[in-house]
Simulated scan of single mutants.
Amino acid sequence: MTVVGLISNRDETNYRSEVSRLAGWCSDNNLSLNVEKTKEIVVDFRRAHTQHVPLTINGATVERVSSTKFLGVHITEDLSWTDNTAALAKKSQQRLYFLHKLKRARAPPPIMYTFYRGTIESILTSCITVWYGACNASCRKTLQRIVRAAEKIIGVSLPSLQDIYGTRLTRKALCIAGDPTHPSHSFFSLLPSGRRLRSLQARTSRLKDSFIHQAVRKLNSLPNLPPRPPSASGTTEL
C-alpha cells in the first residue's frame, strides 16, 4: 500500500491528513498497520531543502529513507536510476552463469534464446517504460553490455534495450490514449487538426524524460495516429 502526497507552500496538512485517514481505515477494518515496516521517502529538488517534521502513525515515528523498493523498482529521493540499474545488472549477471552452463551442455540456440528471454531479458526490461527514458548514458551502457554478453554466448542477434523500450512505450501509450477511463488519458489530447497530440510543456529535463512526455512525443512521431475509441455518448472522438 502506498500513499502519495504533494506538499506545496510548506503546507503538509493534506499529506498528513491522508496518512491519518489510512491509519483510521485500517483500524476500522480490523487491519494492523506495521509502522516498523512502513517507510517514508521525500522527493525535493529545491535548492533550499526544507526540514520536514517526522511522520508519526499511532504515536510511532515512521522511518525516513533515501531509497526504497516499490514493485521491483528501486526509487531514490533524487529520482536517479543508478541504484535500480545496479540491482538489475547484478541480478541479470547472475543469470548469465546458467546461460554459460547451457552453452557448455551444447544446448541449441533456440533453447538458449528462450532461456535468455525468460530469465535475463525479463529482468533487464522490468518496468522499463518507467525508468529507461530517464536513465543516463552510463546506466544504459551497463545494461546493454549484458545483452551483448548474452549475444556472444548464444551466437544470435538480440534486440537492444532501446528497441524494446520504444516498442513497449508505443504499446503503453496507445493503450492509455485509447482508454478514456485511464487516469492519464487527459494528457493525450488531440490538436484541432486531429493529426497530432498536444505537446506537453516541461521546464526541466527530468520532467521531459518522464513517461507521459516521452509517450506523447512517441505517438506524435508515428506516421498516423490511431483512431480514438467511441466515447460514452456513442460518438467517436476525432
Rank of each mutant, 00 (worst) to 15 (best):
E40Q: 15
E63W: 06
V53I: 09
V156F: 06
V130L: 15
T170D: 13
I123N: 04
T167A: 15
T85Q: 03
V73F: 06
A89M: 00
P110N: 05
E18F: 00
E77K: 06
E151P: 01
S20H: 12
D179Q: 06
T235F: 11
T2S: 09
K39Q: 15
R203G: 14
T13W: 06
R168A: 08
T85E: 01
F70Q: 07
V53F: 07
V65L: 05
V216W: 02
S17K: 13
L71K: 07
D11V: 02
V130G: 05
L22M: 09
K103Y: 09
T56W: 02
L161R: 02
L169P: 06
L200Q: 05
T236W: 14
H100G: 04
V156A: 00
I75F: 06
L33C: 03
L33A: 00
I128K: 03
L200W: 02
R203C: 11
R117P: 00
S221H: 09
L238T: 14
D163C: 05
G178Q: 01
P230M: 06
P183W: 10
L22Q: 03
R203V: 10
C127G: 01
L96S: 04
P230D: 11
V156H: 07
C135H: 01
A87T: 10
R203F: 11
C135G: 04
G166D: 10
G155A: 01
E18G: 13
R171T: 11
E121D: 07
D78K: 08
Y132M: 08
E121Q: 12
I154A: 00
K39W: 10
G5D: 10
D11W: 00
L79Q: 09
R228L: 13
N224L: 13
D163V: 08
A87V: 13
H213R: 10
A149V: 05
S221D: 15
E237A: 09
L197R: 00
K208G: 11
K172T: 12
E121L: 09
R168Y: 06
L158F: 10
F70G: 04
K90G: 15
K39P: 08
V156E: 03
N84D: 11
T76I: 05
T235S: 14
A134L: 00
Y165C: 03
A149Y: 05
A202Y: 13
Y165V: 07
F70L: 15
L96E: 11
H100Y: 12
L219V: 03
I176P: 04
V3P: 09
R21G: 09
R148T: 13
K69Q: 13
G72T: 05
T2H: 08
K37F: 00
